[in-house]
Design a binder for these strands. Structure first.
Lengths: 227, 227
DNA sequence: GCAATTATGATAGTAATACTATTATATTTA
DNA sequence: TAAATATAATAGTATTACTATCATAATTGC
């Protein structure tokens, strides 16, 4: 899928200085994505990131108060961008079943093609989301972060897909539970496949996880498998 | 449910010195459970724990190399104990559907009664499992920890319930995926209900999460709801 | 009941982390 | 061209996550 060049806007609550407003800021985002992929979020320090971009750590602190804030920025970017993808994939699709199916595909698979335009490598970013994003909200200061809207973009995605679920079955009681279970589940199953295979099943093809969740959705919403 | 007094044995790979072998060791376990519940795992330090039990941090280090190791010990204890609960709840139950239903109940709900015998407060421990256990394996050294058997007890539980799933439907391709999705999903939904309610649904009664996952299982395994 | 072993307490010390602060030097803008 | 702003370079601090040492207390073996 080739995207139009969309400008992702991130709420000003989520940074000290907008990284999208300067070369250094964009470099911080771009290289942090690469570095987190290489060494993992836990091992990331602003000192190491500074070394990569040839800037002192104090310069990075001007953009983000700490690395959790940076991770929240990255996840917000991803979910805002993913909402665009969802809209793009579902406009003009009449059948809600088909729209839902397309959405599940998008949320259960890491990105495979980069649009090559922006300074954000979407393939690597989606890898980070799958393996590290839960560290953004599984933290002692969730409530405080939530209050300033740190997880708004994620919530919007869950809400949007839940709406399709309700279109299909207006009496279904747990649409948000269903969608967040699928998103988080897909992330975890991929992690398990890589690190704790006993907690998942033999992954025949790369769509196994997607198929599993599609089947759950079809069953629980009584959707006849047509395609 | 009243348990017989069962001795939980934890593999010697998971500690430096067996905490079950001394008063100080048992005190470390007992008070760490309380302290993690109070301040959260992130905020726990061996220094603070030492203050609570009136021992220097260096004494705690003789039992556990670091706090991650302590958390792994606690999760292993919980899952080993939970496997006993599963066995106890399912022996002499003929119908695999009924056995599965009982298992899902156990894994999707925090513990509500403490057996009051051991030094482990099972209610508080289960709270920790629900809110913090993913931090035991979502870490850069998963593979190394996995190699020494740190997650064996958890895997055993997933395996045991997966076996029941296969009894009901031998052709079902994703039993482990289903069970680990349910366990992790139940933990997360409870966390969402407390901190990020937009990601879940109104919880009518305390069994809502359990009901949701029971329904998924029933649908996907084609189980007729009888009770 | 005493020696030998082992566990614990008390204290100190170190490297790394996660910042904050200061000042000089660029770069941009008015 | 002056003023404002951004970045670089450097230093410093509190906390964390340990490690080390030695004295004392408790336990065990004979």
């Amino acid at each position: 899928m080739k995207n139009l060049h969309i400008q992702i806007e991130i709420s000003s609550e989520l940074f000290s200085k907008n990284p999208d407003s300067s070369d250094l800021g964009r470099e911080i985002i771009s290289k942090s994505i690469e570095l987190i992929n290489e060494i993992g979020f836990e091992s990331l320090t602003f000192k190491k990131l500074g070394a990569v971009i040839n800037s002192p750590e104090s310069s990075i602190y001007r953009y983000f108060n700490n690395k959790q804030t940076l991770l929240i920025y990255l996840t917000s970017w991803y979910w805002t961008w993913t909402e665009y993808r969802l809209v793009f994939a579902t406009t003009n699709v009449v059948s809600p079943e088909e729209r839902l199916s397309k959405c599940i595909n998008i949320i259960t698979q890491p990105v495979e093609v980069d649009d090559d335009i922006s300074y954000v490598n979407e393939i690597l970013l989606s890898e980070i989301i799958f393996s590290e994003s839960l560290k953004a909200y599984h933290t002692k200061n969730v409530d405080e972060k939530n209050k300033i809207g740190s997880f708004k973009a994620y919530k919007n995605v869950v809400q949007r897909i839940s709406d399709i679920v309700l279109e299909i079955n207006p009496h279904f009681e747990y649409p948000h539970m269903l969608i967040s279970t699928i998103i988080e589940g897909a992330h975890q199953q991929k992690y398990f496949a890589e690190h704790l295979p006993a907690l998942t099943d033999k992954i025949k093809d790369k769509n196994a996880i997607t198929s599993f969740y599609i089947e759950i959705v079809n069953q629980i919403l009584n959707i006849k498998q047509s395609q």
